[in-house]
């Protein structure tokens, strides 16, 4: 029973981070139809930004999460303006461009920062939740993830720009007819998506030891969450994060840690077979 409780608490805390991980990917996929293969690289840029800014300025890593958003969002905007906007009708070219971009980013980090693993040492101690020791920084990460996730959901559902962005997903042509500049919306969506990836990277940096190529394992989780939740369905994504966190944790605890990825992929396959539009059935195909 005690172990079950541990698994549950641990999963809920993880789920918030996984949701944040998937948020940027989900928006970019939902609005722009871009499968962001550079998501892992964006996460890692965010993590490194936090690491270096923390080293040199000593600011709180939680504040730096917002700086990361500007850094990585800016990178995303440059990437979109400089390249991706010219590839609207060629998803294959875009895919290779993003894979290429991601290896350029990873190699640049390798050249600039070396292959050493980095950590942002945060020790706020632990507190007891339901009689279990939980890291304070993990709870703050949970909070930051909830705030950013909630803010994104609010902006998308209750503001004009947000509604317009959602309208791009639903019907781009009608939007043109209404006189909305879908190019600017696309740029905005891509920038916001990458900024969220940067924020997720910043949160990761506070509890994970990372190197230049650590982004991939997190990107895999983000992809799984997006597919399970339904492409472009952010609420579904939130639910899917919890499912993924629960599955990964319980497979490790009750079975074997070597099987976590296997379990994850089987889950994704099953959902694709049974509910191709995601758990809530509201995503796109």
């Amino acid at each position: 029973m005690d172990m079950l409780l541990q698994v549950l608490v641990s999963s809920v805390l993880l789920a918030a981070v996984y949701f944040l991980l998937s948020l940027g990917l989900n928006i970019i996929l939902g609005v722009l139809d871009i499968v962001n293969f550079a998501h892992g690289a964006m996460l890692i840029v965010g993590a490194y930004a936090t690491y270096y800014l923390y080293e040199y300025t000593g600011l709180s890593p939680w504040l730096l999460v917002f700086v990361d958003m500007i850094v990585v969002g800016g990178l995303g905007a440059i990437l979109y303006l400089g390249y991706l906007q010219f590839t609207v009708n060629s998803p294959l070219v875009r895919m290779f461009a993003l894979i290429g971009f991601s290896s350029v980013v990873v190699s640049s980090i390798l050249v600039i920062s070396g292959s050493d693993f980095r950590t942002v040492h945060l020790d706020y101690g632990t507190v007891d939740i339901l009689g279990l020791p939980v890291r304070v920084s993990q709870i703050v990460a949970f909070g930051v993830a909830l705030i950013l996730g909630g803010a994104t959901l609010f902006l998308l559902n209750y503001t004009k720009v947000g509604k317009a962005i959602r309208a791009v997903v639903d019907d781009r042509v009608s939007l043109w007819i209404c006189g909305v500049n879908d190019k600017r919306l696309s740029l905005l969506a891509f920038t916001v998506g990458t900024a969220l990836a940067g924020a997720a990277g910043g949160v990761l940096a506070t509890y994970v030891t990372f190197g230049p190529d650590s982004g991939l394992s997190f990107a895999i989780i983000a992809f799984a969450v997006v597919i399970l939740g339904g492409l472009g369905d952010l609420v579904g994504g939130a639910l899917a994060s919890l499912v993924v966190a629960l599955v990964l944790t319980s497979v490790t605890v009750y079975w074997s840690s070597a099987l976590t990825n296997t379990a994850l992929f089987i889950l994704v396959l099953l959902v694709l077979l049974v509910r191709p539009r995601g758990i809530l059935g509201r995503g796109r195909v």
Binding site: M3, V7, S10, Y207, V208, F218, T249, T252, S257
Partner: peptide
């Protein structure tokens, strides 16, 4: 990607 579950 995290160490808690293994630690549990």
């Amino acid at each position: 990607t995290e160490g808690n579950s293994l630690a549990i």
